[in-house]
């Protein structure tokens, strides 16, 4: 992570609000509020399924291998800083942040 995050306690998680289609609209990260600027990009990451104890029977493959992600470009409401976040889609609002770029 390249952004200034030194003051942040829990930089691996963000609180994310989405539109009804599940596309992120704004987020709360390290005590700061961000608004998504451009159209976020949906992408799929590779999940580390072999480190989980789950069966890998036929028919369960896709859910095991893929991890849906969004890459969003967002502007901080406090100082206008623009950051790019990789967010792992998760049930609820607490989403893991897997990458931040400025």
């Amino acid at each position: 992570m390249t952004a200034e995050t030194s003051a942040c306690q829990d930089q691996d998680l963000a609180t994310v609000w989405t539109d009804p289609q599940g596309v992120p609209e704004h987020l709360f990260w390290c005590g700061r509020r961000f608004v998504v600027m451009a159209q976020p990009i949906a992408w799929q990451d590779h999940a580390i399924w072999w480190e989980t104890p789950a069966r890998v029977a036929r028919g369960t493959g896709r859910a095991l291998v893929e991890r849906p992600m969004w890459q969003v470009t967002a502007r901080a409401l406090d100082n206008g800083q623009i950051l790019i976040f990789d967010l792992a889609v998760t049930a609820g609002h607490q989403w893991p942040v897997t990458g931040i770029y400025d």
């Binding site: 072999w50 369960t60 493959g61 291998v65």
Partner: peptide, 9 residues
């Protein structure tokens, strides 16, 4: 099918 991705791994 995407299920085969495990086999691919």
């Amino acid at each position: 099918e995407p299920d085969d991705a495990v086999t691919g791994d």
